[in-house]
Design a protein around this nucleic acid. Structure first.
Length: 424
DNA sequence: TCTGGGGTCCTAGGACCC
DNA sequence: TCTGGGGTCCTAGGACCC
């Protein structure tokens, strides 16, 4: 007989804030927040900062409040967080049979068949990650991924009690936690579904686990049905150990300031095309379609609003930044209207196929070998000397619309200049 | 003045076919 | 008055995640 499936979810506590703190030990007990691009809103809060601000709150609204309470704010430093994430994942990988990195700060482990006390293993993972990287993590263990998520949630919510590790397979804990947790805390149940479920009298995770799967499927979708089954202990989701290539690739960004003229918007679009095509080549895909869109600010009621986008059919599946840039600039010219203050542009690459799998029509045009070589050279040079060293002429070196990051920490682990200096 | 950036999956509905 | 019954493919949009 096969052993019962067991999953763990390991999740970093206040990840971005914890990364900043690793290199600022003087802030060990100081509340910290990390801001989104352009220093727009709050996207991470250390435990002490949670009482002052909500997730996603605009920074300018709480700037004074934060200052009054001694909360330290950082611009986001994604190079640092990405590097720290890899270190954390590498430590965990060495301690479990199989790991699925689910996001920058979370991973599922398959612990099926692992002998011994898993609660103890959880504590060892916490200890070793903290020792090797300085990042605190929580561990949730259960028979399905959805329950492991909930266990992890419980480990945080009752941190003092749990010591950061919760195993929901212990029957008394399982029922207790499910009854204590609101249905909105379940993985996959967002705002809309919560409201709808509550209307049906389903309020807690426990209620959802006991609901009729057939009815859930009919009322909502198979997704909700699977969630309920997983809560009841039947695994419906497996570990994804190799991540499949992305089906679409996106680069979108708010400008550092509002733009009214077409020329700087074109610069931004060219820059986003460059980034998106880099991501495309990393996963060795080619795109057949591209969507380019621009928009004004959406929040200010006094501002004239405009948003538009176009889908461009590419002549053949390609990853050639020159072709993509040319077509994107032509497209943005078509949707640009004068008299608006634009805040954001987006480039989406669609209908991706893998290079090897695509067999071109013998008589249709296709990307040339020469184009592939040119892209290889660009990527090689940029990998060696830094992003943007080799770029199309449409991409400026320093843009007036570049994002604001006034509070950014150093590249402690990613740039020579950011390394710590130790004096004897 | 100032409100992020990336993804995934599912469903409904229209167009079209026999 | 009454107006078939399926099937496929595509797209837009909704909902969710971190």
């Amino acid at each position: 007989m096969n052993p019962q499936p067991v999953y763990a979810l390991i999740d970093c506590n206040s990840f971005y804030a914890s990364c900043e703190r690793v290199f600022r030990p003087d802030l060990l007990r100081t509340p910290i927040v990390v801001l989104s691009n352009n220093d727009g809103c709050i996207i991470a809060r250390s435990a002490e900062a949670k009482q002052w601000v909500k997730m996603g709150q605009p920074y300018y609204q709480v700037k004074d409040l934060l200052r009054r309470h001694g909360v330290v704010a950082f611009s986001s430093n994604y190079a640092l967080y990405g590097d720290m994430s890899q270190r954390v994942m590498a430590v965990i990988e060495g301690m479990v049979p199989a790991l699925e990195v689910y996001s920058i700060d979370e991973a599922f482990a398959d612990l099926t068949g692992v002998p011994g006390d898993l609660d103890y293993l959880g504590r060892c993972i916490r200890e070793r990650v903290l020792k090797h990287t300085g990042i605190p993590v929580g561990v949730g263990i259960a028979g399905t991924k959805t329950l492991a998520k909930l266990a992890n949630h419980a480990a945080k919510r009752w941190a003092v009690h749990s010591g950061g590790v919760v195993d929901l397979r212990i029957a008394s804990q399982g029922e207790w936690v499910l009854k204590k947790c609101d249905v909105s805390e379940v993985w996959g149940i967002g705002k809309r579904l919560t409201a709808h479920l509550q209307g049906m009298g389903i309020r807690s995770a426990w209620d959802l686990s006991r609901a009729d799967p057939g009815l859930l499927r009919k009322t909502f979708s198979v997704v909700v049905e699977k969630t309920a089954r997983e809560l009841a202990g039947t695994p419906c989701l497996q570990l994804q150990d190799i991540d499949p290539p992305r089906q679409e690739i996106c680069c979108s960004r708010m400008f550092g300031k509002r733009l009214t003229e077409l020329a700087p918007i074109k610069e931004a679009v060219a820059t986003y095309v460059m980034r998106a095509s880099e991501k495309l080549r990393i996963q060795r895909s080619l795109a057949s379609k591209m969507r380019v869109s621009i928009r004004t600010g959406m929040f200010n009621p006094d501002e004239a609003k405009y948003a538009n986008g176009v889908v461009v059919q590419l002549p053949y599946p390609t990853d050639d930044v020159r072709l993509l840039t040319r077509m994107a600039l032509e497209a943005v010219g078509r949707i640009y209207r004068q008299g608006f203050r634009y805040s954001k542009a987006e480039v989406l690459l669609l209908e991706l196929c893998q290079r090897g799998q695509f067999t071109g029509d013998l008589f249709a045009p296709s990307q040339t070998v020469q184009a592939e070589r040119v892209m290889g050279v660009i990527d090689g040079v940029n990998a060696r000397w830094g992003r943007g060293t080799l770029r199309s002429a449409a991409v400026p070196a320093a843009a007036e619309w570049a994002m604001r990051r006034e509070l950014m920490s150093a590249g402690f682990t990613t740039q020579m200049a950011g390394l710590w200096r130790v004096n004897r």
